[in-house]
Structures are given as C-alpha cells and as structure tokens.
C-alpha cells in the first residue's frame, strides 16, 4: 500500500470563544477552507471553523481581517 505524505504548509487555530461570527475571514480565505459553524459559542455567535486545515497555505489573510484576533496562523 502506498502512503501519501502531505507536508503541512501551515497550522491554523481558531479560538472559537473569541469569535463573533463576522465572517470576514471566510471571505478573505483564498482556499475557501473556512466556514461558519452551525453551533454557537458561549457568547451566542456561530464561530468560524476550518474545514480543511491540511489545505491551509499560511497566507494569514484570515488573521489580517479578524477583528477579534481569534485566529492564529503558523507558517511551517
């Protein structure tokens, strides 16, 4: 069996408790890997979540527009 090892380009972390669901990051992401969660966080907002972290390229555009600094991105 062949194993495909995909090297991660970046790590993205969304601190859901800080997110207020403005959606800026979702529009900013060039890879379209962010979406609004169907559940609510403790403040009652639908937080952003990353559906394909392995596709993150570490451009950090989501970080640049996030008003809450709820997104941390590490370019590997």
């Amino acid at each position: 069996m062949e194993e495909t090892i995909t090297k991660l380009k970046a790590k993205i972390k969304i601190i859901e408790t800080l997110c207020k669901g403005c959606g800026y990051c979702i529009d900013a992401c060039p890879k379209k890997i962010l979406e609004m969660a169907s559940y609510s966080n403790q403040s009652g907002y639908h937080p952003a979540r990353c559906i394909k972290p392995e596709d993150c390229i570490g451009c950090a555009l989501c970080y640049q527009v996030c008003p809450e600094i709820a997104i941390e991105v590490e370019k590997l």
Binding site: K20, G21, C22, G23, P67, E68
Partner: peptide, 13 residues
C-alpha cells in the same frame, strides 16, 4: 483581555 466591540468592528483591527 478579549475585546468587547461589536462583531465586525474596525476598532479592534
């Protein structure tokens, strides 16, 4: 401290 501005506010940016 978490910022208390409204969702989407430009102040926090």
């Amino acid at each position: 401290i978490a910022m208390r501005y409204c969702p989407g506010c430009g102040h926090s940016i």
